[in-house]
């Protein structure tokens, strides 16, 4: 019942060109709010009725979301309610887990990511990912770590590669710290530096969307600050979807916020509320959202 209405709401909004849609919201009269820091209204990813299963276990149910180009979307919610699972479904990274399967659609630039003739390898080229734990390749130098993705595509000129390394390391706010030791191993860096190296590595393949799975959860405040600073600039060129447990972080860096929640133990996770960040943190439509963002549970 609720589901159906959400779909309708979404289609309606799609027609009217409204920037955000509101799955599962009880009140519908929120159109016409200020657009905040949002610069574009073009969707780069549209998720329709997405459900995810691990074997017979349903991890996620009926998620609908529209992700605008050059926006930062933060996904928040208690542990284990499907946030990481959800972003993995956008670039099909969940497929490396045996028996994981998806229902519904993920539309990337107008193309269904799950269409039978789509190769996940091609999807991941357009939708990059930064993981919770920094995972540079230990046998590669810093330089080669940045280029790991680019080199898959074949030979390039040395000058061109040098340029990519410098540009992406600058974007990831790491260049000044490593410019004199590019030939050193990628794991010689501190945890925060490693994570920024992983961001640079992802930027180097020039994806349209960057998924970040709690990229700062294991890092010190200084590193976290640097990553947040970098994110501010990234928005100019990329679309970022970030899972975070840090409410302040979500409030600081994102344009939109999605709240994932499981009402009863054993239920699949749902996108409980999705809206502009300012609205989510000041005047959310649902009580659970308010409880969560104000720190009453989670």
């Amino acid at each position: 019942m609720t589901m159906k209405r959400t779909e309708e709401t979404m289609r309606e909004e799609g027609r009217s060109g409204d920037r955000e849609h509101r799955p599962n919201t009880r009140t519908t009269e929120v159109a016409g709010r200020s657009s905040g820091g949002v610069k574009s209204a073009e969707p780069v990813v549209t998720v329709e009725n997405l459900s995810m299963y691990y074997g017979s276990f349903k991890a996620l149910q009926d998620v609908n979301m529209r992700i605008d180009r050059n926006s930062v979307t933060a996904l928040i919610g208690p542990s284990g309610c499907g946030k990481s699972t959800f972003i993995r479904s956008i670039n099909r990274m969940h497929e490396i887990v045996p028996k994981a399967r998806v229902e519904g659609k993920v539309i990337l630039d107008g193309e269904d990511v799950y269409a039978p003739d789509v190769d996940p390898v091609r999807v991941r080229r357009k939708v990059g990912m930064v993981f919770q734990k920094p995972n540079p390749f230990p046998t590669m130098s810093i330089y080669d770590n940045v280029l790991a993705g680019i080199k898959l595509g074949g030979k390039r000129k040395k000058g061109e590669l040098d340029e990519v390394v410098e540009r992406t390391l600058r974007q990831a706010a790491l260049w000044d710290e490593v410019k004199d030791k590019l030939k050193q191993g990628g794991t010689s860096l501190s945890g925060g530096q490693q994570q920024r190296l992983c961001i640079a590595r992802t930027l180097a393949i020039e994806p349209e969307v960057i998924l970040m799975d709690e990229p700062a959860s294991a890092l010190d405040p200084v590193s976290t600050q640097k990553i947040e600073d970098a994110m501010e600039d990234l928005k100019e060129r990329y679309t970022v979807v970030i899972v975070t447990h840090n409410m302040q972080q979500a409030a600081r860096i994102s344009d939109y916020t999605g709240f994932f929640f499981i009402e009863n133990m054993g239920d699949p996770g749902r996108l409980w509320e999705f809206d502009e960040t300012s609205k989510m943190f000041s005047n959310p439509n649902r009580k659970e959202t308010e409880d969560y963002v104000t720190g009453r549970f989670g």
Binding site: N91, M93, R124, R125, N135, T202
Partner: peptide
């Protein structure tokens, strides 16, 4: 593995 796959390998 995930790191490399996510780069489109």
């Amino acid at each position: 593995r995930e790191g490399m796959l996510a780069l489109g390998a």
